[in-house]
Each structure stands twice: as C-alpha cells, then as structure tokens.
C-alpha cells in the first residue's frame, strides 16, 4: 500500500489497463473480453495469426475505425474509451500503423509542421535525419512510399509526437535489413528507459517475425487467437513454442498459461 501511495504522486504504475474490452463490427465480435495491463516502463509484444484481431486491438486503443466497443481502457489512470482519436493522441497514445493511408493533399513536412512546435529547430532536424526522411518532406504523406519509407516516416511522426504509450503494428513488415536497423533504433529511442519514473513510457508492439526483439527490451508477450488473449508469458519462450507447435498448439498449452500467469 505504501508503495502504491508513493506511485500516486507520479500517476499510476500501470500505463495501460484494459478491462473486458469487446470490439465488434457489423454484428461480428472481433475482440472478446480482452483484459491487459502494461505497467510503466514495460514493452509488451502481441502475437497471433492473421485475422486474430491484433491490429483491431491497437486501433481500438487509439479509438480508430468504425467499431462498436464496450469495456474499459485506462491510460495512466484515466478512462479514455469515450474520447475521440485526437484527444487520446493528446493524452499520450501514439500509433504506427502497418499500412497507413496515402494523403496526397498533405506533405510529410507539412504534417510535421502542424504537429510540432519545434518545426525548423535543430531537435526536429536531428529526428528527421536520424530516420533519413529529409528527402521525403516535400512528398505527400505515404504517397508511393516504399515499405521502408513508410515505416521510417511513421517512426519519425511518433518521435515528434513523443507518446507515453507507443503502439506499433508490425514494424518489420515489408522492410529490408538496413531499414530494420534504423526503425529498431527509433523504437529503442521511443521506449528508452528513464531514470525518472514519471517519464517512463510503455509499448505494445505487434510482431510476426520477432526480429524486432533484437531492438526491444520486451518484458512480456501475449498471444491473441480468435479475438481472445489465450496466453501470456516471456516473449522469447512464446516465440519458441509457437515455432514448435504453431499458434493452435500455444492455445492448448497449460504450462505456458501457468508460466505467464493470469495477470492479464
């Protein structure tokens, strides 16, 4: 209790707390009774086959898409499930989509200008160069971007946004090895541990391949199957198991469920 009281001064220990989240579209449930907690300073990995609802979960946290949702989403102790997308963004949720829409009407530079007070500053220039995005500034956002360009631009936008909850959908998909290094570095920077507890961020990252684990200090993994979290545990153990038995095997594995505990 003492420990908890101390934490109240700096906000909640838990950055993201999802309770009984159900998400449906057109009468079909995509996510069923999801409960999940990500403490400050931790990064969790979301695994699952195509169509299991991973992307929907990230979008639902961000408030995007025309879904019907019930249940609770708490960010840093505040209920955000009733808030608009922009209000969630301003409270510190940041999402990098796997496939972002092309916006020919707005250049990447123009978007950064609208987003960041610091446009034109050295800090912004450093961020742009760290992701090798300078040559993309005068192009429409995501218009004819290659896989790597799109991911780098997404990471750049997150660096400018500085979210406290970082949601990333498949950072390594469609990206060559060279770009994975750049994107991995950016992710590492976004989720960098901080000495000051109140500056600690949290992350939830979808990955298929696990390559991105080389850049992340992932604390926990969750397996999503048919809209439910079926097991949680050490991310590398989970990858190993899935490699051996596939996702369905993972669903029926009582040992992993015990190991991961039912914290979610």
């Amino acid at each position: 209790m003492i420990c908890r009281d101390a934490n109240l001064l700096i906000g909640d220990v838990v950055m993201l707390k999802i309770h009984n989240l159900t998400v449906s579209t057109g009468g079909k449930e995509i996510l069923k009774d999801i409960s999940l907690e990500i403490p400050r300073g931790e990064t969790h990995i979301l695994l699952g086959p195509n169509g299991s609802g991973k992307t929907t979960l990230l979008k639902a946290i961000m408030g995007m898409g025309s879904f019907q949702t019930s249940g609770s989403i708490m960010l840093d102790g505040e209920e955000i499930s009733g808030l608009g997308i922009d209000e969630r963004a301003r409270r510190g949720v940041g999402l990098a989509l796997q496939r972002s829409p092309a916006i020919p009407e707005l250049t990447l530079g123009g978007l950064l200008k609208i987003m960041g007070q610091e446009y034109g500053s050295g800090a912004m220039a450093e961020k742009i160069d760290s992701l090798n995005c300078r040559y993309l500034l005068n192009r429409g956002v995501n218009v004819n971007f290659s896989g790597g360009e799109m991911k780098r631009s997404e990471m750049l936008q997150l660096l400018v946004q500085e979210p406290k909850l970082v949601l990333v959908d498949e950072p390594e998909s469609g990206v060559d090895l060279e770009n994975i290094v750049v994107i991995g570095e950016a992710l590492r920077r976004l989720l960098k541990p901080s000495r000051e507890k109140e500056k600690e961020r949290a992350g939830l990252v979808i990955t298929h391949t696990g390559h991105i684990l080389d850049y992340l200090n992932a604390d926990k993994g969750h397996v999503l199957l048919h809209g439910k979290i079926v097991c949680s545990g050490n991310p590398r153990d989970l990858f190993e198991e899935i490699g051996r038995h596939g996702f369905e095997g993972c669903a029926n594995c009582p040992e992993l469920q015990l190991k991961g505990g039912q914290s979610c």
Binding site: M64, G65, D86, R88, A89, R90, L111, I114, M115
Partner: peptide, 18 residues
Amino acid sequence: AVEYLMSRGLSRDDAVSA
C-alpha cells in the same frame, strides 16, 4: 486519412481543413 491525422493529435476540423 482524417483518422490518421487525428491520431497525430489534429482535431477533426484541423485534419479536414488541412
């Protein structure tokens, strides 16, 4: 596109105007 810009913190009005 509007939702995408809103996820970057722009209000709906600002996103549509941009």
